[in-house]
Design a protein around this nucleic acid. Structure first.
Lengths: 344, 344
DNA sequence: TCCAGCTGTTTAATCGATTAACTTGAGGTT
DNA sequence: AACCTCAAGTTAATCGATTAAACAGCTGGA
């Protein structure tokens, strides 16, 4: 890595570094004769010149670096798609992203924000790995963009999934298939998830729109994991036939996995006897279930892109309210018409 | 973000910038009176001085930035733990990591390597999201560290999971429980996975060590997903009783998921009638199965740490051969003794 | 002849730190 | 008095680019 400097190119081309800089950056290039331009380019090529971004950044006050700080990359498989979206936009624009994982540690977070600002990043994104409301850490620049979280107080650009619409899409799917007794396997209240509240709202609003009276017993709550889903689903399937649901909208794909297990244990088939819709479109899970799970996808990739576009000034954001990113429904094979005796 | 320069601190403390630099960096600090040191520190504190890393880097030829380029962060949930491990070490050492996702595109890769070297990163890690042998891209510095991949030709520092030992641990677990007819649900040959070959070696070596004659029919191959595992398991369970396996070691947790499904369809219980061991310890899957899956964990976090430690010079690596990171077995509830008629 | 204006290029300041080399004054020695 | 040493700084060069301002050489017009 013997670094080649601009002066090396200049020497070889027999011009000054100013000329080299102008030619290579296409600045004021009309003022430089094409023979010289040619010579400079050839020289640069010949010696394998690669500009030193550090020096350039110092002079131009622009690093083309954007900081992305997130709570926990580690513990969630969702992160990837968000990073990929953000990264792609950054690359399209000739930027690089510095990723910092604070592991939820506030001290580390402060330190990271300092380090990033010390490195003069041009922009900053603050990402959460699951949708929630956050207290904006101080030290976070005014123009930072929040990704998959909404600011508690301060007004910041932010993007979150449109959970309410997602819940509606899921339940509409079930209503469209003919179901009227649709359960919502929700996360327990103690987790205080904004997703839970909003998806429930979506659920209720579609029931209302379909003229279905919501039955409180069909709003089951459990630990939002497979085991919780299994237990909740069991309880619902043990209900007397006239109160039993023919379909379940699950808070996430893991709970849906549990619902499958409960159905199988009762000798019920999916979707023959029970239709199931999940949420998250979790990689390596939703599509692998048998039958493949119809679910609502969290738009991680798109949110990642959006955040980076705003961060780089490619797009304007309304700081008054978070941008709601649609959650598309992914149709697979876990939804069918209700069993005959419930049909219309 | 009106940046405060060192000269501002110097002016406020009534000293030169050289003094400020020395005090704040603790260099030559014996040469500076403690009153002055005190004044400088107070001034820095008062104006909220934060050193400009770009300027510092230009001068010291050290950016404290390390580049991590990887093929596809997006499509795998494993990435997280590797990034987390690398990130953590970087942070401990006061470094930041620039993450580039090339999406498997060679052009993007070359561009990324150039951009990173232009930004003068101090070190570089080249990561794969699943264990394989790679052609080292040219443009990758000599001292770059390979993470979760082995170099095809060039000698580089590299770390990969010890798949062979992992396979051995998995099969030993089954042998220890009393099984003798142990199937290996492998990935199909066409995928040409190094993990497949090595885990199979481990499988065979433990059988040999236990004095069990390997039965070729028990080495089943399928698509390494749930569906493939299900079909392969089905075929094995349809074997006549004396040839049927009492335990299955699956190439990955998804295939194990399929094996569970096949067993349930046959009315067999896990681990009562069939013991199952997976591989990967896939988040949100292995622990969520019913019963929770005994599996071999891929040491992503540890490999991430190792790679960064080598990259930062905290640890020496042997460039002649990749470092093998142990894959610990994670005991859950899918292994039990073979059913009575097969017992000893 | 002289100057204005143009073309093509160079000079030199600058970004904000680090650091080798130098300065200054006090105190000690001979 | 002359000289040295030491403490406590300061000066100025430097890292490698960018860029405003200067400059040299030429053309053309008055």
């Amino acid at each position: 890595m013997a670094r080649i400097r601009m002066s090396d190119v200049a020497a070889r081309a027999g011009v000054s570094t100013a000329t080299v800089s102008m030619v290579l950056n296409g600045v004021n290039s009309t003022r430089i004769s094409s023979q010289t331009q040619q010579r400079v380019r050839e020289a640069a090529e010949a010696v394998g010149y690669e500009p030193n971004s550090v020096a350039r950044s110092l002079r131009t006050q622009q690093t083309r670096l954007v900081g992305l700080v997130s709570d926990t990359i580690a513990t969630t498989p969702f992160a990837g798609r968000m990073l990929a979206g953000a990264n792609e936009v950054a690359r399209e624009q000739g930027n690089l992203v510095i990723l910092v994982d604070t592991e939820g540690d506030v001290g580390a977070e402060r330190q990271a924000l300092q380090a990033l600002s010390g490195h003069q990043v041009d922009a900053m994104i603050y990402a959460c790995m699951w949708h929630r409301v956050v207290e904006v850490p101080n030290g976070l620049p005014e123009d930072a963009v929040l990704l998959d979280c909404a600011p508690a107080t301060a007004d910041r650009a932010a993007v979150v999934p449109d959970e309410r619409a997602g819940g509606m899409a899921a339940v509409r799917e079930l209503v469209a298939a003919g179901h009227r007794r649709i359960a919502f396997l929700d996360a327990e209240e103690r987790f205080d998830l904004v997703a839970s509240r909003l998806r429930h709202e979506g659920y209720l609003s579609v029931l209302a729109e379909a003229g279905i009276e919501p039955d409180p017993i069909l709003h089951a709550r459990a630990d939002p994991v497979a085991g919780g889903g299994r237990e909740a689903a069991r309880r619902l399937l043990d209900l007397p036939a006239d109160r039993r649901p023919t379909a379940m909208f699950c808070f996430n794909d893991r709970m849906a996995m549990g619902a499958y297990a409960a159905a199988h244990q009762r000798g019920l088939s999916v979707p023959g006897d029970l239709s199931v819709v999940g949420y998250d479109d979790q990689q390596l899970v939703a599509a692998e279930l048998d039958p493949p799970l119809t679910t609502v996808a969290l738009p991680h990739y798109e949110m990642g892109r959006w955040a980076m576009e705003v961060a780089l000034g490619l797009r304007r954001a309304d700081p008054a309210a978070p941008h709601l990113m649609p959650c598309p429904i992914v149709r697979r094979a876990s939804v069918g018409p209700p069993p005959a005796q419930f049909g219309d």
